[in-house]
Nucleic acid binder design. Structure first.
Lengths: 221, 221
DNA sequence: ACCTGAACACCGTTCAAGT
DNA sequence: ACCTGAACACCGTTCAAGT
């Protein structure tokens, strides 16, 4: 617990940005985003809430730093260009982004609610546009494809994590849906109910991702 | 879920669900989601905050009712089957969903944060799966395509409305991005910067939507 | 330089009591 | 039956003062 004396002037700081972000991510995993308050985070670090504001100007800034930290390593998921074609490398990046968001409770909500311009986020964007540009797509196509893949991935994972919340009571939702669909007003929902209520989110994600990549193939001719 | 429905014994109610949702949507447009509190809403209706809880058990329930109301009429946007092919009808539904979310400040944030199982939301889902089933897609394909299109559309519109917020200071974000990209660490972002920083969100949306629909065409053979 | 203590201006929600 | 008044248990954020 006791940190050895540091060569810095004055008292060694108990707090710093990296430790604060790490503790916040731990607390997020334990209790979820709604329970992540500046006061509870301060408690977990044995400090008063006001002290956090020496390292983050606002809670939003802390959340942005958390989002940036969550997507560390995602940019490298494309792998070497020799090993696979552009669509497989793009798919790997999208899967790595989803996995990074799923790795933390409410990860997609945190990520969607912030606008990181840190190296992990920019690295992911650079990596995906790079894969596409090297595959022969134009600069404009690569940029728009990045938006499409990223927005789909975040939108999907938002839904996926919301569906997994116990309070959202997947069974209540599915119950309502089943009731409404079989009442006759929604014949197409009734027919597709088994797939709609499936919890195989990986299959849902892979289907949507494949649509985007097949669509991209068609764009390139 | 107990609605005080009994037709007027005693005083006529000042409050009711429909008027409350409407006032909440007006307040949302004026001030944004962060400023939409139960107290301010109560003020706007000349009532005490506690009174709202006779009509909505929680704020979350109110937000769900708002989300459901926002997407009214979207289901009908497909148009008659005779007038256009399946992909155009599906595109019309996706565009109508985006337009409905854009019609209210923070509309996508409200929608993404709730799980409506009301007739407008279910009607949209039934309409889109119906278009696809009638076009020959399997039940499972139709259900998964619904998720892909809806998640992309909500994810896109979330980004779009976030980028339009004045506090998010599009210029600050674009400035950071420009600075970082031209510093040399992100060569592909630098090359695609003009498109990445474009504010023609309709073009971005249409590109992603086209990818999904072209991808669907490829799935069907 | 770093953190405490205490305050400011709020929140969502509950519920006895009035009318 | 419908709403008020007042409370409960919190929030994010600020800042003078201590060490």
């Amino acid at each position: 617990m006791s940190t050895p004396s540091s060569p810095t002037r004055g008292r060694p700081a108990r707090l710093n940005q990296a430790r604060t972000v790490q503790t916040a991510l731990d607390l997020l995993n334990e209790s979820g985003l709604d329970a992540l308050t500046m006061r509870r985070l301060a408690d977990a670090m044995d400090v008063q809430a006001g002290a956090l504001y020496r390292y983050f100007a606002t809670k939003q800034d802390l959340l942005t730093a958390m989002a940036e930290r969550m997507v560390g390593g995602v940019a490298e998921a494309a792998g070497p260009a020799e090993d696979s074609d552009w669509s497989e490398r793009a798919a790997r990046l999208a899967r790595a982004l989803r996995a990074a968001l799923l790795a933390h409770r409410d990860g997609a909500r945190v990520y969607a609610g912030t606008h990181s311009t840190g190296p992990n986020t920019l690295g992911f964007a650079d990596s995906l546009t790079g894969v596409l540009r090297e595959a022969g797509f134009s600069d404009a196509e690569a940029a728009r494809a990045l938006y499409a893949v990223a927005n789909f991935t975040v939108g999907h994972t938002l839904e996926e994590q919301a569906a997994l919340q116990p309070e959202n009571n997947g069974s209540a939702d599915a119950g309502n849906l089943h009731e409404a669909a079989t009442a006759g007003a929604y014949p197409h929902l009734a027919a597709t109910l088994p797939t709609l209520t499936s919890t195989d989110f990986t299959a849902h994600f892979e289907f949507g991702l494949r649509l985007l990549l097949d669509g991209l193939r068609a764009v390139r001719q």
